[in-house]
Design a protein around this nucleic acid. Sequence first.
RNA 1: GGAGGGGUGGGUGAGUGGUUAAAGCCACCAGACUGUAAAUCUGGCGCUCGUAAGGGCUUCGUAGGUUCGAAUCCUACCCCCUCCA
Length: 393
Amino acid sequence: MTDTRFSFTLQHQQGRARAGELVTPHGRVATPVFMPVATQATVKSLTPEEVLALGAQMVLCNAYHLYLRPGVEMVARLGGLHRFMAWPRPTLTDSGGFQAFSLGALRQVDEAGIRFRSHLDGSLHQFTPELATANQEGLGADIIMCFDQCIAYGASKEEVRQAMERTHRWALACHRTHAASPTAAGQALFGIVQGGAFPDLRAESVAAITAIPFSGYAIGGLAVGEDKAQMYEITQQVAAGLPAGRPRYLMGVGSPEDLVESVAQGVDMFDCALPTRVARNGAVFTRRGRVDITARRFAEVTGPLEDGCDCYTCGHFTTAYLWHLFRARELLALRLASIHNLRFILRLMAEVRQAIIADRFEEFRREFHDAYRPTNEAVRQAQKERWLKARGG
RNA sequence: GGAGGGGUGGGUGAGUGGUUAAAGCCACCAGACUGUAAAUCUGGCGCUCGUAAGGGCUUCGUAGGUUCGAAUCCUACCCCCUCCA
């Protein structure tokens, strides 16, 4: 397998934080990069032009969802993923392995693959590493992912081990399948490290996955219920074990604070449904933290969601108007909040990159955390404990 | 003037003798959401004591009454609505 049209160049490094560039058949991508999630070949509520204007360089689509509807063949007949969704820039597809985690009772895992009960019509489908790879080749994304088994936090070590070892076997199968494919030259295949929150399993997984010559390496199975301290530790450990010359992708992360922290551990790529989902539920990111703007106290706030934000929403509308749109359940509320949140994240990433290149990432990181207050109860609790400890000791 | 209907917790609106501090919805408050089965979900929402379990107090227009027991039955009064003159 040779990715003649895919490459990654490390441009600058400060501590573990890296700035680099991906080259793909559909263009270049400056890293660290956040990929907005376009599960069903659309970033929910936004047009590709809008997504592009927000500063997005690349989006993630989901092969499982597109396989069920409209179907891989259909997308291929309609010109492939890029043309189908009118997104001319780089794309990445997830294999459907995550749905082994998220679909709950609708799926069953065995050695051959994962059997899914379609959430659309109840029909039964089996995904194997071979099929998952072929599906992604059919869709035609620039980067495709190995079919892995993502497992919930709280599973026993033995269960995590089994899922991990299966993921390793499937990784080999995916690599073999892709290498034999005529489309291989145009697509980069990434491997995925699993192993839950167990450092020894993670070490094993890093060894097994990096033994296969993938174009990039992903950290999977995080942000599935473990606490943030664990997540950061595992991220640091795994990132440190991945080859420096290949892009590192932390799947499914994240929140603003997670992005900053993970870049600090040497991660180059991210995707996350959080910014857009949370936006549709009325929560908005600001430099001071996440805010639920549907609360009554925002009814008459005449300023923008955030002073100094350069997004379309903040440039045109008051917080009071957004509040009204959410209360009235107007569709524009979803769009305007999504625009703001994605712009917030994408701008954050651009600033992170600039800071790394200018060798002032650590200052940036500190300033960010000083100002940013996640609403997450656990984090707040941890902050409180740290404060009490610092005060008492 | 005549006939009829109705007044329930912030709003709307169920409830017509006990299991009712009183459904549902809205509003309000809080929380969750991380490779999207999500424009979703969860909890709270009379006052008060308690960390909790649980306890106390006050509520269904107003005032009386019947009853072991009343938002529910009776009487009077106040107010609102509809139709007919």
